[in-house]
């Protein structure tokens, strides 16, 4: 007689089942898609990308997905970016600028509120944020808000955030290199952590040269 736990208890969750119906969005980088459950960025959840310096955000990693979200006609909120999302290049990358919200909360405690409101409002298809601190309760609240608003929550944090526990559905460590980047999946709901995924970029960035 084989031992089959789910027949004993129906509420035992097995790692192989579940999460298959989670919506996801292709990242535009096949090497990364292969490693993510659902084959892309998890929608209705929080994604954390840890970068060396948040002032040098690798937007190229997410622009294909943001451009693909454009057909939804929902808004994309950028909360407290540490630099300037450059409009001419974003438009070239296929992002609908008229659906973009650029929010700079004046005070620190307004930041998380703004992210939560934008995520939970069901008005934004994606909320990109650059929080200075994000752990514990805050990340849990954002995760719930993202689920409520069916929104893709995206946080760019620095490397030292890796030591904190968060409830983000996906946590990536991003190391840029000459040809693209090396991505480590620190945490992935419904999948498994993976090291050193090599992402290759197109040789030249979009735009026409003279």
């Amino acid at each position: 007689m084989s031992f089959d736990p789910p027949q004993i208890r129906k509420d035992i969750w097995r790692g192989t089942s579940g999460f298959t119906n989670t919506l996801s969005l292709p990242t535009g980088y096949p090497q990364l898609d292969q490693c993510l459950p659902g084959g892309g960025w998890p929608l209705g959840a929080l994604t954390e990308i840890l970068v060396e310096n948040t002032a040098e955000t690798p937007l190229w990693l997410i622009t294909p997905a943001l451009a693909a979200l454009g057909h939804e006609q929902r808004w994309q909120a950028w909360v407290a970016p540490t630099g300037i999302p450059y409009a001419p290049a974003l438009a070239n990358a296929g992002i609908n600028l008229s659906k973009m919200l650029l929010i700079h909360p004046p005070a620190c405690n307004d930041l998380l509120w703004t992210i939560e409101q934008s995520l939970g409002s069901n008005i934004c298809s994606a909320v990109l944020s650059w929080p200075t601190r994000l752990y514990g309760t805050a990340s849990r609240r954002l995760q719930l808000a993202a689920k409520r608003g069916r929104s893709w929550g995206l946080c760019f944090c620095s490397y030292n955030h890796a030591q904190y526990q968060t409830t983000a559905a996906l946590r990536l460590l991003f190391r840029p290199n000459r040809r693209g980047a090396e991505v480590t999946i620190l945490k992935c709901r419904g999948g498994q952590s993976m090291k050193n995924i090599q992402l290759l970029r197109e040789v030249s960035p979009p735009g026409y040269s003279r």
């Binding site: 937007l59 630099g83 999302p85 450059y86 001419p88 990358a93 600028l97 030249s204 735009g207 003279r210």
Partner: peptide, 19 residues
């Protein structure tokens, strides 16, 4: 928010500009 501005073709530009 909601204003539709025309897009001009440009040479290759970075996605992220420093302040």
């Amino acid at each position: 928010p909601g204003m539709r501005k025309p897009v001009f073709p440009s040479a290759a530009r970075p996605l992220w500009l420093f302040r």
